[in-house]
């Protein structure tokens, strides 16, 4: 997994609520057996019309808005557990998603793939949308070590919180499998005491 420590970037505003993973990556693009190239189909049906023409009014097609941060409305990533949603966002080039609320499975998937979900208050989120939409060159600064998000060059900041274990993994680029494998002996002795009818 890629390390994440600090990021200063412009942000792409997508002020919709309840963006579900079927929108992030529609099911018909889940046929792949590898993790690569999902970025091409990120937000496919919002980015392109049925005839494959770009939809000019969608923010990813607006070259004025670029950056490695996606700014989205509350309850981002609800719906299907498909990790492909996190892969698609990462592959497209996003490293951070900011929202006032994340769906549970998406949040875990993002963290397992080096994509940082930053959860802030509804009020600060509104302020960020306003800042980014009124000045596209606005830079946001995400500092994982300090757990803060700041509008660069201003005193507007808010802290966010992240599970300390996950934070350590991201800062160091570790993932969970290495850790679980190291517990093999513990797991085996757990199994010895575990009721047999539960572990057919």
């Amino acid at each position: 997994m890629k390390k994440f420590q600090r990021l200063i970037s412009r942000a792409v505003p997508l002020p919709l609520e309840n963006i579900d993973t079927d929108q992030i990556i529609p099911a018909r693009f889940l046929k792949a057996t590898t993790r690569e190239n999902f970025g091409e189909n990120l937000f496919r049906d919002w980015r392109y019309r049925a005839d494959e023409q770009s939809r000019e009014d969608f923010v990813l097609n607006n070259l004025n808005h670029t950056g490695e941060i996606l700014l989205a409305g509350r309850n981002f990533g609800c719906g299907s557990s498909r990790e492909h949603a996190a892969w698609a966002l990462f592959d497209y080039g996003f490293r951070v998603v900011i929202s006032s609320f994340f769906a549970d499975i998406f949040k875990g998937n993002a963290l397992n793939n080096g994509l940082l979900p930053v959860e802030i208050s509804q009020g600060f989120l509104r302020e960020l949308f306003h800042a980014v939409e009124s000045d596209k060159s606005t830079l946001l600064c995400v500092d994982l070590e300090k757990e803060t998000l700041q509008i660069a060059g201003t005193d507007r900041r808010e802290s966010f919180s992240i599970d300390p274990y996950k934070k350590m993994c991201l800062l160091k680029g570790y993932d969970d499998i290495d850790f679980l494998i190291s517990l093999k002996n513990k797991i085996e002795s757990f199994e010895e005491k575990h009721p047999s009818f539960l572990s057919l």
């Binding site: 557990s81 492909h84 499975i105 875990g108 998937n109 397992n112 793939n113 499998i177 679980l180």
Partner: peptide, 10 residues
């Protein structure tokens, strides 16, 4: 509960 693919691997 549902899990993502990284957790499937775990």
């Amino acid at each position: 509960f549902g899990i993502g693919t990284s957790q499937v691997a775990m």
